[in-house]
């Protein structure tokens, strides 16, 4: 994975596969220069056995093969950049993943194109409410796919003008958020 936006795509995919109806992705920069990424969903959750093996690359709930690298790769990135990862889950309630990165660490991954990643997730999973939250010392913002859909009426997010507009808005918000770093 080249950057954090790709990891977000990957982790959110886990939530989608767990039949989540709402997925909240948040990025918070704290005063100690840590970036906290959290992905919270209301999907099926994991049982104790699965949760214990969530960081094990040789464990997967899929039946196509016995390997699952999504969370292990993110854990490796977080730990390599002076951070950590934690996963909490309750069966029937949902899962909460938190990964922290020290922004001043040379191995901290680049953020990547998070606006595009958010638009893509929203546009390609119409039945799921995707919420992106950003918070820093100077500002905060939120993108909520349900609100966006309400404002748009029946116009799809992939419509050219809509896409350009949303990406413009997301990019503006995101560059403000990057000012916190």
């Amino acid at each position: 994975m080249k950057d954090l936006s790709l990891h977000i795509l990957d982790i959110v995919q886990n939530s989608i596969r767990a039949n989540a109806l709402t997925v909240t992705v948040s990025l918070i920069v704290d005063k100690d220069n840590y970036l906290h990424l959290s992905v919270i969903d209301n999907g099926t959750g994991m049982d104790k056995y699965q949760l214990e093996r969530v960081k094990d690359p040789f464990f997967s709930t899929r039946t196509t093969r016995k390997i699952g690298l999504g969370v292990p790769l993110l854990a490796q990135k977080a730990e390599a950049s002076g951070g950590f990862i934690s996963v909490k889950s309750k069966e029937g309630k949902g899962t909460e993943l938190l990964a922290s990165f020290l922004l001043t660490h040379p191995d901290c991954p680049p953020l990547g194109d998070i606006p595009e990643c958010a638009w893509m997730l929203m546009a390609s999973s119409p039945g799921i409410r995707m919420i992106f939250k950003f918070k820093g010392a100077m500002n905060e913002c939120e993108w909520d796919s349900d609100q966006i859909r309400t404002e748009l009426g029946g116009i799809p997010l992939t419509e050219k003008e809509v896409m350009t507009g949303i990406l413009e808005w997301f990019k503006l918000d995101f560059s403000n958020f990057k000012g916190n770093i």
């Binding site: 966006i148 748009l152 009426g153 003008e161 507009g165 949303i166 413009e168 808005w169």
Partner: peptide
């Protein structure tokens, strides 16, 4: 075409688009 900077701008964009498409 409206420059979208906030959520509220999307509504304006929608009105413009609905006339067009």
């Amino acid at each position: 075409m409206t420059k979208v900077k906030t959520l509220a701008d999307l509504k304006k964009l929608r009105e413009e688009l609905q006339k067009k498409i």
